[in-house]
């Protein structure tokens, strides 16, 4: 199963992901992250199709999708 991850600590709260999600299942949090921003998250994770539209629109690399398959993790590790 793929997994979508929203990195709250990277989110600047611009809400562009909310705007473009075809399933309309992203919303901004009530609370604030360490940067002082509301952050994006899924309201109905089960309905996510992992299309990555939100990730493409996100200017801050705050959304990633991972796959279960063993060959998956090749680009997330930092230096």
């Amino acid at each position: 199963m793929p997994q979508i991850r929203f990195f709250a600590e990277r989110c600047k709260g611009c809400g562009l992901c909310v705007l473009v999600c075809p399933q309309r299942i992203i919303a901004m949090s009530e609370e604030l992250n360490e940067l002082g921003n509301p952050f994006a998250g899924l309201t109905e994770p089960a309905r996510c199709t992992y299309c990555a539209t939100c990730g493409r629109m996100c200017p801050d690399l705050a959304i990633e999708i991972e796959d279960d398959s063993p060959s998956a993790d090749n680009s997330t590790s930092s230096e």
């Binding site: 600047k12 200017p59 801050d60 090749n74 680009s75 230096e79």
Partner: peptide, 27 residues
């Protein structure tokens, strides 16, 4: 579907304002 930070971008937060297009173009 895999979707990750590109290798060529460092794992740091940018100084750009919320909603700025630079981050998208960087990607």
């Amino acid at each position: 579907m895999e979707f990750h930070r590109p290798r060529t971008l460092k794992n740091v937060l940018t100084h750009y304002c919320p909603g700025c297009g630079h981050g998208i173009v960087h990607r």
